[in-house]
Design a binder for these strands. Structure first.
Lengths: 248, 248
DNA sequence: TATATTATTGCACAAAACCGCAAAAACACG
DNA sequence: CGTGTTTTTGCGGTTTTGTGCAATAATATA
């Protein structure tokens, strides 16, 4: 393999995953560590990536994308990490959109083998960075506000799916009222998502607990897992743990 | 064997495999290394390929995966600006993916009223910033490499659409061979996109001109507009302007 | 802090590129 | 046809580049 080809390959990996490990490249390209290191050094000299201990990082990832502006990011990372435990190799997972879900995707293990259906383009792009994950983006009208696809076409397609697990964020959850929402379209969509999967998990930060909005999505019993940043035994979660709903 | 024959042979190898090794050519053509090197140098001077240590690479190969270094960004902005002239209020537009198309979206007038179908999540997200634009994302399998949806499901949905204009990038275009590609799935997809719209425009930087790859998408006559960063009267475009293809 | 992983450095060897030159072939033209 | 000119090609020697190895230093991780 020519040097230039290796460089292109490395840059493709970087663009795909935002990062790359030296050891992985050694295996994939079947050359010595030294060669990889020199390649990385040259790419650094060309200003095409960042080199760090153990590999290299995408430049754009660090400069352009500012994750820190995401509201309550720390909490969301905790939630995301907990939620990854629900995912096993070979599963078919359906996900919604939103920053929490996005964070969840970023926390998935590199080696995960699974199939993901999603209504969020951003989630799809993030999922695509995993080599062994198949991503199916459910198409339809694209919502400017929530950055997800919605509408009849989406619901129709959801009706043809049966996933093992559905992961969604929520704007409100209450022990008595269950999952609620304000937007009619989103409401319909969530119902369809729940119907399209055997089990379901709700990811939400604690401040969305004990809130009920106008439109009901489903009763609390229909949810199998509730993932928050709080400790399992926290006071705030007491009213939820009574049900056959597992708290993570 | 005459020099011209060797050159043709080399270019055929390049178009076929995207790469060629000096040592292979020495064997295949049964001439000295120096001769091959000189041949390659001449082809470089003609701008027909890239020379690297150990051999040469196709030009399209380098740009087939647009890296985050916003390769040839200036050119793409020029192209994008030209292409926006094709869009009128009320139109239904179908777009592909890629950085050129993305740049095109960014150059659209703020007030535009239109409907966009797209197979690119990133394009969808960008389009969503326009208040008066309706965005429909066509869903399906999500390609890790090209960041677009593809596969049978996408093609099926495309068959139900009739847009006014289809905008796509390309990896190669040639006056005789027409639009060509290397990937079977992408090839099918592009055919479906062209079939789904009344008119079509190809956006590409000049270095993708006069390149023919293995799989044929469509003859040059099926394209209505060709948008490059070059001036309308440029030499390189001469062979294209003969057809009923409008150069922008 | 101890231990394992990763980086760095200098070195050696092979492959490829480069340079100048001369033989061979192709061409031009009286 | 013959002769001078140009182009093309191959050869030998030198220089540059690419790669891997081994010893040592730096850095992570528990």
């Amino acid at each position: 393999m020519l040097k230039k080809e290796r460089h292109d390959f490395i840059m493709r990996q970087i663009n795909l995953h935002n990062r790359v490990l030296t050891s992985d490249l050694v295996q994939l390209l079947n050359v010595s560590e030294d060669t990889i290191r020199r390649d990385l050094q040259e790419l650094v000299d060309q200003g095409r990536l960042f080199k760090v201990h153990g590999g290299a990082l995408s430049k754009s990832y660090h400069s352009s994308f500012d994750d820190s502006t995401v509201y309550a990011r720390d909490s969301k990372i905790i939630i995301a990490k907990k939620a990854t435990k629900l995912i096993k190799d070979g599963m078919v997972v359906l996900t919604g959109g939103g920053t929490t879900i996005l964070e969840f995707v970023k926390q998935l293990p590199e080696s995960l083998q699974a199939t993901f259906f999603t209504i969020s383009p951003l989630v799809a792009v993030e999922l695509a960075k995993y080599n062994n994950v198949e991503v199916i983006l459910i198409g339809g009208l694209f919502s400017k506000n929530s950055q997800i696809t919605y509408g009849g076409h989406v619901i129709m397609q959801l009706s043809e799916i049966k996933a093992d697990l559905c992961l969604m964020g929520t704007s409100a959850i209450d022990a008595i009222e269950g999952l609620t929402d304000t937007d009619w379209e989103i409401n319909q969509l969530k119902k369809a998502m729940l119907a399209a999967s055997k089990k379901s998990a709700v990811l939400c930060i604690s401040e969305k607990l004990d809130i009920a909005l106008r439109l009901k999505v489903c009763p609390i019993e229909h949810i199998n897992y509730l993932v928050t940043e709080l400790d399992k035994g926290d006071q705030l979660l007491k009213s939820y743990s009574l049900k056959e709903l597992q708290i993570l």
